[in-house]
């Protein structure tokens, strides 16, 4: 190594040294600092772009779903009204049917009762007729059996009248 008195001369070696060392430093910085950071910046830019796209799509999707829900809600409201109307109509029908049935039943029962009463009256009348006939026959048989004198006859008539009175009362 020598010390030169004048430094203001061309040191071409420095040029070579700087070119080579700068190149080495550039490669190292590229590999260790520039590439990872710019890759991440690019990735971030992509991610942001994607997120924006996704957000737009999601908003569109949500709007579509909301419209669909609204539509369905409107449909279900109409359906509910229809169901209530149907139920009301069915109820009314049922009510009038039950009332009609009740009316019919009542009429039938009434008629039946009338018929039964008539029957009972007929039966009772018939019974009474039979009783009178039997009595007449009894009386006749008793009259015939006994050779009746006036007193006996009188007694018989009295007892018969008595019996009638008893029978009536």
């Amino acid at each position: 190594m020598q010390v030169l008195a004048q430094s203001n001369q061309l040191y071409m070696g420095d040029m070579l040294f700087y070119l080579i060392s700068f190149l080495i430093m550039t490669i190292l910085v590229w590999h260790f600092a520039w590439k990872p950071v710019t890759d991440m910046m690019k990735k971030r830019a992509d991610k942001i772009a994607n997120d924006i796209d996704n957000a737009t799509n999601n908003r569109k999707e949500a709007a579509k779903l909301a419209a669909q829900r609204q539509e369905e809600l409107k449909g279900s409201k109409a359906e509910a009204t229809k169901i209530v109307d149907d139920a009301r109509k069915n109820g009314q029908d049922l009510r009038s049917k039950i009332i009609d049935d009740a009316h019919n039943d009542a009429r039938t029962i009434q008629e039946q009762a009338q018929r039964d009463a008539e029957q009972a009256r007929q039966d009772a009348l018939k019974g009474a007729k039979d009783d009178v006939a039997n009595l007449s026959i009894e009386i006749a048989s008793k009259l015939i059996k006994k050779q009746l004198n006036a007193d006996d006859q009188q007694e018989l008539i009295d007892s018969y009248i008595e019996g009638l009175v008893k029978h009536e009362s």
């Binding site: 030169l4 004048q6 071409m12 420095d14 040294f17």
Partner: peptide
């Protein structure tokens, strides 16, 4: 002041710059 220099293969190298 001046710099240290040396010659190598006909090229002058400057220690200060290096």
């Amino acid at each position: 002041g001046d710099a240290y220099t040396f010659n190598l293969g006909g090229l002058t190298f400057n220690i200060t710059n290096m």
